[in-house]
């Protein structure tokens, strides 16, 4: 098992380097001179050249990459010329909001997918089958921003049950002191029950909106696996040992059906954490998505660059965790990958 994990960490590092290199080179190849953009079109050529030298833009792409990575690792993520702030400060202020939303969206997608898959396979009737299938097609097909607006119309405008598009907390709620940046966690740590409830209420609509597509995807994947697994002899044998059909499904079919979806779930999770620009816009969510679209439009390279690196890191980390998880949950993986016993 240890050997498996150390091997995975090495390959993770290699893919991180690869991803950062590709992102770096691609961004440098896009037209536009960062020094010129930074100084504006009226600055003299001398000033631009001086800045280019200072930023290291005259060296080869590889040497630029080397310098950039060195600074990035020491915490200097560069300077955002469009906002005039340090990139690290900007991103770290907004990333927790994106992460919190992503976590809740994933939680919703996962729980909903598991329950829908279990119930529809258990019932095996054309009605529950058709109903849940229609729901999953809808989930995968509907545009998230439109769905988000509809949710707001119904639950905020219509019933008034949930808060409107006003970000992470109501205006009159005092945010808890920042520890993790995740408001739900921080409010619990501070013992602030009101803030916690308000944070949750603000999370529901955006999380459901963001989690809708992953839910549809996971549901279909899980359902197909579950269908196959419930026909396996060990399910019949489990019932022959004295489990009810439901117990055999939950205890034996579900874990086995879940294993092959683990990788896909991990990728979805990574995607959710990287944020969704449109959903953040609809709910005025102060996440990193909006920041990055602005960065792209204004050719604010350092913001985009740092964001790509951060996302790559999250992706690689989740797939690392997923692989280790799979190895722990599935005894057959551990053996075939050289974990031995």
């Amino acid at each position: 098992m240890l050997r498996l994990i150390s091997g995975r960490i090495v390959t993770s590092l290699i893919s991180l380097v690869g991803a950062s290199l590709i992102a770096f080179v691609l961004l440098r190849l896009t037209p536009g001179d960062p020094a010129r953009l930074f100084l504006g079109q009226f600055a003299g050529e001398d000033a631009v050249q001086a800045l280019r030298a200072e930023l290291g833009l005259n060296g080869s792409i590889l040497s630029q990459y080397w310098i950039y990575m060195g600074r990035f690792l020491s915490g200097d993520w560069g300077f955002s010329y469009s906002t005039g702030q340090s990139v690290a400060g900007l991103l770290l202020a907004r990333f927790p909001a994106t992460v919190e939303l992503g976590l809740f969206a994933f939680f919703f997608a996962f729980v909903a997918a598991v329950s829908c898959a279990l119930v529809s396979v258990y019932r095996r009737g054309p009605v529950s089958d058709g109903g849940v299938r229609a729901l999953s097609f809808f989930a995968q097909g509907v545009p998230p921003f439109w769905f988000g607006l509809m949710m707001l119309l119904v639950f905020f405008e219509g019933f008034g049950w949930l808060p409107g598009p006003e970000g992470r907390l109501g205006l009159r709620i005092i945010p808890p002191p920042t520890v993790t940046g995740l408001l739900t966690v921080d409010s619990l740590l501070a013992g602030d029950w009101t803030a916690f409830k308000d944070a949750i209420r603000h999370l529901i609509l955006p999380a459901v909106t963001l989690g809708l597509m992953p839910f549809g995807f996971l549901y279909r994947l899980l359902r197909a696996n579950l269908e196959g697994i419930t026909r396996e002899p060990f399910i019949t044998v489990a019932r022959g040992r004295g489990l009810t059909r439901w117990a055999a499904y939950v205890r034996h079919a579900l874990p086995n059906a879940f294993l092959p979806t683990l990788t896909a779930a991990g990728l979805l999770f990574g995607q959710l954490l990287a944020g969704s620009v449109l959903v953040e816009r609809v709910f005025v969510w102060p996440g990193a998505g909006a920041l990055v679209t602005d960065g792209v439009l204004k050719q604010d390279f350092s913001v985009v660059q740092a964001f790509i690196l951060l996302s790559a890191f999250i992706y690689v980390l989740t797939s690392l965790v997923v692989d280790i998880l799979a190895a722990m949950l599935d005894p057959r993986v551990a053996q075939s990958q050289g974990g031995g016993r």
Binding site: F234, G240, R241, G242, P331
Partner: peptide
């Protein structure tokens, strides 16, 4: 729920085994 007290207690089942009769995980 009535059958579960009979299966595996009064009557038990042995199945053909092409690897599949026991939960692999």
């Amino acid at each position: 729920s009535a059958m579960k007290t009979i299966r595996g207690k009064t009557v038990s089942l042995i199945f053909q085994d092409p690897m599949g009769a026991l939960d692999p995980i």
